[in-house]
Design a protein around this nucleic acid. Sequence first.
DNA 1: AAGCTTTACGTTAACGCTAACGTTACTTTT
DNA 2: AAAAGTAACGTTAGCGTTAACGTAAAGCTT
Lengths: 338, 338
Amino acid sequence: MDSRDKTTKIEDVAAAANVSIMSVSRAIRGVEGVSEKKRTEILKIARQMKYVPNSNARSLAVANSNLIGISLPTFAGEVFADILNGMRRTFDSAGYSSVIDTTEYDPEAELKWVRRLLSWQPAGIILTGTDHQQETIELLKASPIPVLEIWDHTEDPIDICVGIDHHQAGQMIGEHAYALGYRAPAFVSTPRGYDTRADARLTGLRDVFLREASTSVLSARPASSNSFSTGFDGTAELLDRATPDLICYLNDHMAFGGMMCCQERGLSVPEDIGIVGFNQLDILSVLPVKLTTVRTLRRLMGIAGARNLLARINGVVVEKSQNLPLEFVIGQTTRQQG
Amino acid sequence: MDSRDKTTKIEDVAAAANVSIMSVSRAIRGVEGVSEKKRTEILKIARQMKYVPNSNARSLAVANSNLIGISLPTFAGEVFADILNGMRRTFDSAGYSSVIDTTEYDPEAELKWVRRLLSWQPAGIILTGTDHQQETIELLKASPIPVLEIWDHTEDPIDICVGIDHHQAGQMIGEHAYALGYRAPAFVSTPRGYDTRADARLTGLRDVFLREASTSVLSARPASSNSFSTGFDGTAELLDRATPDLICYLNDHMAFGGMMCCQERGLSVPEDIGIVGFNQLDILSVLPVKLTTVRTLRRLMGIAGARNLLARINGVVVEKSQNLPLEFVIGQTTRQQG
DNA sequence: AAGCTTTACGTTAACGCTAACGTTACTTTT
DNA sequence: AAAAGTAACGTTAGCGTTAACGTAAAGCTT
């Protein structure tokens, strides 16, 4: 449409300013080697000509880029938005751009994306969780590019890792629940294998009740359209087939959906049934009843992860694996005493 | 760290496979000019060598890329996640990657991002809304790259546009509210100038009540940490200084926060006060009382936008400006009859 | 004022890839 | 069996930028 077809390149600017290409390059990048006078003159002309540097040529020449690739399971929900915000601000102020992708919890999609991304010679790559295709791991280990695994914790990361221990989080919930006297807990989650972090939390919870009370933990794993209705539907399913005294959820939104279900069925919380969420999400701040939940430091995680990755990119040695603390927040949706 | 420093390039693969560079290039890109036998052989060797093509070199050579830049105000909330999902799926299956950025509602940040993005020779650019810095508009109009403006509607887009008319949405709410007999409506939003779409809706609502009843519409614009508490706080502020018979919100999450506030103050909905949300968000599906709201087709918008942009990229002429329909959904938080 | 250092430039050769055009070898046609 | 076509390759010349090196002029030292 607007076809002044040939875009202006550095050469055109050089010609217009009557200097060499290198002087323009130096002026634009702000490196030494041009007098202050020429620099301002060149920059003025470049602006007038609407010159836009070609990052492809630059990255090709210097064999790296200032791109950071970030892979998330999904954009839905606050969790990854929080982590992302923490990371992005850090990267931005360090002059890096982020290329974000979501896998929708599909490791195959993650692999495809990693392959595509690697072709852009990014400065760093961030993956969510520690559960990846074998080929993804090999590809990344073979490349010199720093890799950060976030949200999940492992002692054996691809490169470096900042996260929380979800199995331990499940145990924490289990221990508090047991101490409060609950003996028939249940867990509402998403379909098995979909969210491996959720699976780990459930396992942690199960471990505790198996050990302490030789009790098994029921679970419901509906596949609904969103968190709220997943919580609602899973709760309905559980209550139809059993009588749990406590229901733990994958996150607070699901817990809210579950509370709505209990309310509809005339069950009062916490008298008839206890409810435990996860993540301490925004909605809690306006609920009339304080939800029992687990606080996760998502923004902090993003910032810490980004910092470590940047350090790693700059060749500084950082700790392989950082485990962030969790806090069990006792609200009004569980009993106050054992 | 893992420094087999020299990454393998197409030349190395060619040497290993005993063919010319071009044969490898053709095999990898899947274009004509290599026998099926050689192709599979080359691909096998390339995989073994963990060859990753260099997109920078490719883009430099062909003078374009398969990147689509997407600028959103924020990752928070469902709205942009929905739009994004619609778009990304469409782009993905067409072989494009998306580079996403958030401006946090700052036009200056948008400009900086547009400049950076243009340097990557993207295939297309997507901006949210129609409110941009003058320089942003000039830069984009001067470039040959197709630009899509989404979410908002205008008859005079930079290039093409797919969205809804927020002023009209405000009028729609106003007309229904007036018809239901409300005479003292109020609006809870975010600080002025922050979200221009919200401002447009408020203006639409005001227009109707000014015309029909010569009434002004009160507004509260708190700056809280999240949607839920913004709704809660704004409602508290309004109720402290006036007695509205209806409160309209920027979105359903804020409306929910507002309902919680009303509940805390002993006001019953819809008897004492009416509540209207916006967007028909997920949470509505589990609330015991159906919220009156306006349904927006966000996924569809994403898909339609992406399709149009792709067509535009491929040189197909598409309609400049597409206006998607809105639907006023009458729930149980407003009176049933005027 | 000769020698040395510093600053301000310019020249050249990549960076890894692909479009465009050449060159083979292999079919088909007559 | 010669001519003519066609599919399968290979060669060359960029794409726009920067690192590395080269050169000339200016400043400093004694």
